[in-house]
Simulated assay, not measured.
Amino acid sequence: MPKHIWLDADPGHDDAMAILLALHLSEIKLLGISTTHGNTSSHCTALNAARCLHAFGADRQIRVYPGASKPLILPVKYDAEIHGEDGLGGVEGLLPQDDPSLLDWFAKDSEGATIRALEGMATSIRTTWNKGAGSKVHVVATGPMTNIALFVSAYPDLLHAVEEFVFMGGGVGVGNRSPAAGGVRSVYRS
Rank of each mutant, 00 (worst) to 15 (best):
I73D: 15
H37Q: 06
V76Q: 12
H24A: 11
Q61E: 14
I73P: 07
A149E: 15
L158P: 03
H24N: 15
A113D: 13
E92I: 12
Y188V: 07
D109L: 08
L72V: 07
A154V: 03
D104V: 01
F106V: 02
M121L: 14
T35W: 00
N130L: 13
S41T: 09
L94S: 14
V187Y: 13
A55R: 04
A113Y: 07
V162D: 04
P75Q: 02
L7F: 02
C44G: 02
T127M: 07
T142N: 14
C44T: 10
G143D: 13
H13T: 09
L31A: 05
S42M: 00
G175W: 12
A46E: 03
T146K: 02
P66T: 02
S101R: 15
P66A: 07
E85H: 07
T45Q: 06
H43N: 00
S110P: 06
H54A: 12
N130Y: 02
N130H: 07
V152H: 13
W129D: 05
P2I: 01
P11S: 08
P2V: 08
S42T: 06
G143P: 15
A113E: 09
K136V: 05
L88R: 11
G67H: 04
I125L: 01
H54L: 14
D99I: 11
G120W: 00
A149M: 15
A58D: 09
G89T: 11
A122D: 11
R126P: 00
A80R: 15
L158I: 02
L103F: 13
V140C: 13
K77T: 13
V139Y: 04
F151L: 11
M145F: 08
R189L: 06
V187M: 12
V64F: 02
H24R: 14
E164C: 10
S110K: 15
G90H: 08
A181F: 05
A133G: 11
V187P: 03
